[in-house]
Simulated scan of single mutants.
Amino acid sequence: MTATAAERNTPLMRTAVDEGIRVTEVTDKAAAGLSETVTPQGLIAVCDPVDVPLATVLRANPKLVAVLHGVTDPGNAGTVVRVADAAGADAVIFAGDTVDPHNGKCVRASTGSVFHLPIARAREADDVFEACRAAGLRLVAADGYATDDLDTADLRGDLTHPTAWVFGSEAHGLPDTVIGRLDTSLKVPIYGGAESLNLATAAAVCLYASARSQRNA
């Protein structure tokens, strides 16, 4: 931390020292070089990776999981992690060519949620889908072109089932080849004139719909 940051965060510095964490003072120039932000706060920490094995995430019989497939924007990915955390999801899985959860912008967009719930990564999306099914999760694609929507699924009681929501990139969504490998697809009903919802908003609506149904079942 810089001298200015140390003055602003004295309790934090004392706690770190009490926990045996090495604290080093650096110059403002060094802090700027270590930080990825335009206006760094003067605090830099070295942490262990947050991701855990996929098998570990699914071993605990999860009821609600968010799967990111091909999401390359770190801000979107981090925001979905934040949403999943808020909705009480059991885990977030980064599948296929999805951004690294340790990306600085992804971590910042999560506002700390990457430390609150299990994060797993898997290079092969098919491995993720098979593992989720084996864990008793129903794979549901969030697809703006789906025939059924959340309202219909809710009325049928489908949202009470243990679910792994699969979200694609904001620009392209999920490929048809991926949607075809999942159990079903649902869209968020749009009652107004908006063409679509962004990824984080759609994820919030879907995850909260499942969370509410599961809690009220």
Rank of each mutant, 00 (worst) to 15 (best):
F167Q: 04
A60H: 13
V188I: 15
V166C: 08
A153N: 09
F115C: 00
I119C: 06
K187N: 09
D97Y: 08
G70L: 06
L54I: 13
G112N: 01
A131G: 11
L182F: 04
A217D: 12
V114M: 08
D90V: 07
A200G: 10
D85E: 13
G168V: 02
G88R: 09
S210W: 03
F167D: 06
K63W: 12
D28S: 11
V92C: 10
D51N: 12
S213Q: 14
L207K: 05
S213H: 10
A200I: 09
D127Y: 04
S110F: 00
D73I: 02
F129A: 03
E170Q: 07
I190V: 15
R133P: 02
V23Q: 13
R14Q: 14
G88A: 10
L58E: 06
L58S: 05
T163I: 14
H172Q: 14
A134F: 03
R121Y: 01
A209N: 03
T111P: 00
A142N: 11
A135S: 13
D73Q: 08
D183F: 04
G78D: 05
A6R: 08
S213C: 09
M1K: 09
S210K: 07
N103Q: 07
T2R: 12
A31D: 11
G104Q: 14
A32I: 03
R8V: 01
I21V: 15
T79N: 08
H102P: 00
G144E: 07
G104R: 11
I179K: 12
D151S: 08
A5Y: 08
L199P: 05
A200S: 14
G157V: 07
T147V: 13
